[in-house]
Design a protein around this nucleic acid. Structure first.
Lengths: 107, 107
DNA sequence: AGCCTACATATAGACAGCCTACATATAGAC
DNA sequence: GTCTATATGTAGGCTGTCTATATGTAGGCT
């Protein structure tokens, strides 16, 4: 998976993965890998800053938790994040439709 | 259309538009707008450098032409560009499939 | 005890491509 | 003469993703 292609879609992926249940960063990376059948293997250096960014934007709420000696920061969708996810889904459909109409004009 | 979303897909769009017939930059912009139903309105500051880049990479061949006093640089796909387009189409399918499987897990 | 792997988070800096804004010039309509 | 459409191009900014590095716990293996 080309890095540039992901650009601008990371937010949608993160919000979508957090839709059903709150997860911490490492679990999010695993969820993305599993749900994409291995196609999405996003590095930690991408995910952690992105989660912070979404938290600053008010789309996610993060909370520290301890699992034994391990510290985890678990993120959940805020109401604003839920609305943003709906927008991202809609934008994704428009995006694929627009690019698709150019790439596969026969469809 | 969000600017970041386009990132990494510009090449595929340009190659695809030039698949049927050679076109110059301005006409490419119009073709993208028309074929996408107005969704894609790519600024000249994006297209012209991208065309140069693809030419340097050997995917396009450009040639100056005169239409009256106007100068135009018409680009056509090279054989390498045609092969690259096939790769871009394949990558696009993988990409939409991967993101789609995360965004719409019910499908 | 010592080592390795998996789990878990984080930051600094590099990189690349798309954008805005600007610059230039012709053609044709009004 | 002015305006709009046509036509190309560059400089510089922005920003999000990546690589590389750092830190530390837990648990298995030898």
């Amino acid at each position: 998976m080309n890095a540039d292609a992901l650009r601008g879609h990371m937010d949608a992926l993160l919000l979508s993965v957090l839709e059903r249940e709150p997860l911490h960063g490492y679990a999010i990376i695993e969820a993305l890998r599993e749900r994409s059948g291995g196609a999405l293997d996003v590095p930690t250096g991408t995910v952690y800053p992105a989660l912070r960014r979404l938290e600053r934007a008010g789309l996610l709420a993060g909370e520290w938790a301890a699992d034994g000696g391990r510290r985890r920061r678990t993120y959940r969708l805020t109401d604003l994040g839920r609305r943003a996810l709906a927008g991202e889904r809609s934008a994704w459909r428009s995006f694929t439709s627009a690019i698709g109409s150019v790439l596969d004009p026969l469809r």
